[in-house]
């Protein structure tokens, strides 16, 4: 109990830390400045293309309660559909990339085999695949596969890099303590690569998020935030279009925040090294 009070007290002191307060105030100031400039720009230009922050905020809240005229769903359902695609695509990418990365990183034959393919396919922007994937995999799986490709390469390359950086004396130590090849993988190589994997996941999340919006704009049906943005612009509801962009921004912040939280927890041991 006394300990709890002590740590609480310490955290209060830390919050009161002058530099932190100043830094936080400046961050708030930058947001306020952004909104003010937006408001002024909207007032001066006075076009429907650039609604004021207030109008966007109204549209934002309204989009969650009323169905939009284009696709007859609310924002909740759009978010749900986008997240479904996002989660399935991302999980598939992880399921494929992690074991492949471990294999390619550790064994030289699969490594030599995969290297040229990776070098060819990695630089292609995932969105380039959208048209053909929509033809092959149709509107349900097409966007999912685009996300898969977008998230796959950063996770794969990071796992490969992680395996290659395992310190040799850790392998030696494990061997002298009785580790065979299988336990070497599960108890040394895999745990060692987790921080690398998580760095790949954070990058992959950002890319996947870009992919979903683009893929939905080009060819999703039924709903999705990307499709929503596209439709609202098409029917001239620009305040609602901006509301869709705000939703994308918030969801992106949440996913990346979540990933870096998990990354920090799993990589605790690496932080101070």
């Amino acid at each position: 109990m006394a300990n709890g009070i002590k740590t609480w007290f310490k955290s209060v002191i830390r919050i009161l830390d002058k530099k932190r307060v100043v830094r936080f105030s400046i961050s708030i100031l930058s947001l306020i400045a952004f909104v003010i400039i937006w408001q002024i720009a909207a007032d001066i230009s006075d076009t429907e293309y650039l609604p004021t922050p207030g109008e966007v905020l109204d549209a934002f809240f309204d989009s969650f309660v009323t169905k939009d005229p284009a696709s007859q769903v609310t924002m909740w359902q759009n978010i749900e559909m986008s997240l479904d695609r996002f989660i399935i695509g991302f999980l598939l990418a992880m399921i494929l990339a992690v074991p492949m990365g471990l294999l390619i990183g550790y064994f030289w034959v699969p490594g030599a085999f995969a290297k040229p393919l990776i070098e060819i396919f990695r630089p292609i922007p995932p969105i380039a695949w959208v048209p053909i994937f929509l033809v092959i995999f149709k509107d349900v799986w097409g966007p999912i596969i685009v996300i898969l490709i977008g998230a796959f390469f950063p996770v794969l390359s990071n796992v490969v890099f992680g395996v290659k950086s395992v310190e040799p004396h850790l392998i030696d130590a494990a061997k002298t303590l009785g580790a065979g090849r299988a336990t070497l993988f599960t108890k040394v190589i895999f745990p060692y690569t987790i921080p690398y994997l998580m760095a790949g996941v954070t990058i992959g999340l950002g890319i996947a998020w870009m992919c979903i919006v683009a893929a939905e704009m080009i060819g999703a049906r039924g709903g999705g935030v990307g499709l929503y943005i596209y439709n609202q612009a098409a029917i001239g509801r620009f305040d609602y279009m901006f509301a869709g962009i705000v939703v994308i921004a918030l969801l992106g912040l949440i996913t990346v925040g979540l990933a870096s939280f998990v990354e920090k927890r799993l990589s605790k041991w690496k932080e101070v090294r």
């Binding site: 310190e167 004396h169 850790l170 030696d172 130590a173 494990a174 987790i194 041991w269 690496k270 090294r273």
Partner: peptide
């Protein structure tokens, strides 16, 4: 180099 497992 000690060779401790840093995550343990």
């Amino acid at each position: 180099e000690f060779a401790l497992f840093p995550w343990r």
